[in-house]
Design a protein around this nucleic acid. Structure first.
Lengths: 207, 207
DNA sequence: TACATTATGAACGATTGCGTTCAATTATAC
DNA sequence: GTATAATTGAACGCAATCGTTCATAATGTA
């Protein structure tokens, strides 16, 4: 219960919290947890090191906070564009384009790369990420395909597997390659490949 | 020229070099370059720290040596099983199974995860990896499909894109998910999905 | 046995970085 | 203005680690 009773003292600066988390995100994702420097984070965010330790008990806590913020940010993105009325091909293309748009963002790619590495020693971080992003994505895509099956637009199949197939067709080698090169995939080029991928998917699964 | 002239002194212990590289691989890929400890590597490989510095000038040099060894190890694997005489479906299934077999090896997955992260600060490492593995893989798969096109087994198409499609169909979500969970993909299950993926590929590209 | 080189172990200097302490300053409510 | 809490800057203890030095031991050839 927030009694609205205002304390008679200096309030915490909420802007600073975001600044800290922003700087921490960059530092952690660029150098990794171990090599990240709290002092650098303090300097970049324009905040005293003590302030950071006042708000986040340890380096681990700060890292967890960063990951959590990124995860909620991610899960907010996946809203299935189940625009009824348009045909399946258009729906799948829209879905694919949204997905590609999202996945090719530099900061998303950096997030992915870093979580993959950190999960080596911190499995719970990997789980958090999976639940916030990939599993959600698969669930929604599967639901979309199940609805298509029930409408008879595509033939009956294991829709979860089909979702994986569509995802794979869209990404091809590109997302794989992009993880290891500084200049990620050309989002524009990947966009152009989406219709092709969807058409191959419909060749394979269409009625 | 190796004149066969034997030096009259204690020779270098070649076994130790491998031991060092093995320990270094584990340490680097588990903790990342920055957090890896040379002293741990020395202890695990049963070698003095000075010996390591005698053979590898710096930590960076040692890391580079590890990456290079892993890369040559990888490039040695990709021999296209272009068994002529078998039909395309069998050929693609064999290719897929070999690929899955290789990619799901725990030490290969750890290599991938770590290179992805390190490439953030060391692009040249990412390039090395790409040339040793993924690009080679794509080249061979593309060649296989081109030969299939010329034989009329599948219809004419952009074979490099088709190769990406086949790769994507085979991996689906699984390789993606596996990067973030401690228990990787069930290689057995992935194996079973290969024929399905190949059949969907042939649905889409078959003549 | 004498020699040449590799390998070891222990210690060192220098750096970095976490997390803490403390006195001083700032911002807000009353 | 005063009380209260947030924030700062500087300094500290402590541990880890890179890379080096050096005296000593081990291992091979001649």
């Amino acid at each position: 219960m927030d009694t609205g009773k205002k304390p008679r003292h200096r309030p915490v600066d909420l802007v600073k919290r975001e600044a800290i988390l922003d700087a921490a995100r960059d530092e952690f994702f660029t150098h990794g947890f171990a090599a990240a420097s709290i002092e650098t984070i303090a300097a970049v965010s324009g905040v005293s090191k003590v302030t950071i330790y006042n708000r986040f008990k340890t380096k681990e806590t700060l890292f967890a906070a960063v990951v959590e913020r990124q995860c909620t940010m991610m899960s907010a993105v996946f809203v299935a564009p189940d625009a009824p009325g348009t045909d399946l091909r258009q729906q799948l293309i829209a879905f694919g384009e949204t997905m590609v748009d999202f996945l090719t963002q530099p900061h998303v790619m950096r997030f992915e790369r870093r979580i993959g590495a950190e999960a080596e020693l911190r499995p719970e971080v990997g789980e958090l990420f999976l639940n916030a992003g990939p599993r959600r994505l698969r669930r929604e895509l599967t639901a979309l395909l199940e609805s298509a099956v029930s409408k008879g637009t595509i033939r009956p199949c294991d829709c979860e597997m089909a979702a994986g197939h569509l995802y794979g067709l869209i990404c091809g080698f590109d997302m794989f390659f992009a993880r290891f090169s500084e200049n990620g995939p050309d989002p524009h080029q990947l966009q152009q490949q989406v219709p092709d991928a969807v058409d191959r998917f419909l060749d394979a699964y269409g009625d």
